Amino acid sequence: MENGTTLASAGLFIIRYHSFYPLHKEGAYMHLLNDQDKEDLKWLKIFKY
């Protein structure tokens, strides 16, 4: 939370992993994701376009 605003967990996931191409291009490291991460990955794939 900064300046009275918050980002949804998917937004934070996108900020953190948008440049981590092996995850969202090749599907690497999928075995390390929990259920919430897998849900947020869908938003990351939409955001990259």
Rank of each mutant, 00 (worst) to 15 (best):
M1A: 05
M1E: 05
E2S: 09
E2C: 02
E2M: 07
N3I: 03
N3P: 02
N3S: 10
N3W: 02
N3D: 11
G4T: 08
G4D: 02
G4F: 02
T5K: 12
T5I: 12
T5Q: 08
T5A: 04
T6L: 08
T6V: 09
T6A: 08
L7Y: 08
L7A: 03
L7S: 01
A8P: 02
A8T: 06
A8E: 06
S9E: 10
S9R: 10
A10K: 07
A10E: 04
A10V: 01
A10Q: 06
G11R: 03
G11E: 06
L12K: 05
F13T: 01
F13E: 00
F13Q: 03
F13H: 07
F13V: 01
F13K: 01
I14S: 03
I14T: 03
I14F: 00
I14Y: 00
I15M: 13
R16K: 14
R16Q: 12
R16S: 11
Y17G: 01
Y17K: 00
Y17P: 02
Y17S: 00
H18D: 10
H18C: 15
H18V: 15
S19D: 14
S19Y: 15
S19V: 08
S19N: 15
F20E: 08
F20M: 08
Y21I: 14
Y21H: 14
Y21G: 04
P22T: 12
L23K: 08
L23Q: 09
H24S: 07
H24M: 05
H24R: 11
H24L: 06
K25T: 15
K25Y: 13
E26W: 14
E26H: 13
E26D: 15
G27T: 06
G27H: 07
A28E: 15
A28L: 13
A28R: 14
Y29F: 15
Y29H: 15
Y29V: 10
Y29T: 09
M30T: 15
M30A: 14
H31T: 01
H31G: 02
H31Q: 09
H31N: 03
L32P: 02
L32N: 12
L32E: 14
L33D: 04
L33F: 05
L33I: 08
L33G: 07
N34L: 09
D35M: 10
D35Y: 01
Q36E: 14
Q36A: 13
Q36Y: 11
Q36P: 01
D37W: 03
D37P: 07
D37G: 15
D37Q: 13
K38G: 01
K38D: 05
E39Y: 08
D40W: 01
D40G: 05
L41N: 11
L41Q: 06
K42R: 11
K42W: 05
W43T: 04
W43H: 10
L44E: 01
K45A: 03
K45I: 08
K45C: 09
I46Y: 13
I46V: 15
F47A: 13
F47E: 10
K48D: 04
K48P: 00
Y49G: 14
Y49T: 13
